[in-house]
């Protein structure tokens, strides 16, 4: 076997069409007003957790809305559910419900018909 000294980089681009949009759709059904997010970042600016650990709730939900779930559980565990983000959202998005919905989705057993999303496979169904 040849030792190449390097490996082929994996694509970084979000492959929207190849992604699984099940959780994205479930989230937007539970919190329809999330569609009106204008990406202002008020939620992240005020976030209790995000001010001390790398956690960006605005980006997190944007990723979910593109069908990108890698590392989702680890990220969600950083949320302290204080609710400040909901107070500052100019679009009135129930961010707490958004977080809880995502946690519920992550907790659903695979048998419930929710395909295991990339990156969530190791943790789905454990709780």
């Amino acid at each position: 076997m040849v030792d190449w000294g390097y490996t082929i980089n994996k694509p970084r681009a979000i492959a929207y069409d190849a992604n699984d949009h099940t959780w994205e759709n479930a989230l937007q059904e539970a919190v329809p007003v999330l569609r009106s997010c204008i990406g202002c970042g008020n939620c992240t600016a005020t976030c209790t957790a995000g001010n001390f650990v790398p956690f960006n709730i605005r980006k997190l939900q944007t990723l979910v809305r593109r069908g990108e779930y890698a590392g989702l559980r680890k990220e969600l565990d950083k949320c302290m559910l204080c609710g400040k983000c909901r107070l500052v959202c100019p679009r009135g998005i129930n961010t707490r419900k958004m977080i809880v919905t995502l946690k519920r989705l992550l907790a659903q057993p695979v048998a419930a018909g929710i395909p295991v999303a990339p990156g969530a496979a190791s943790t789905a169904g454990q709780r």
């Binding site: 190449w4 000294g5 390097y6 490996t7 082929i8 980089n9 994996k10 694509p11």
Partner: peptide, 14 residues
Amino acid sequence: VMANRGSSVANSKK
């Protein structure tokens, strides 16, 4: 630079 070859080959692969 060998450390960068992974991204070089990835472009051709794409």
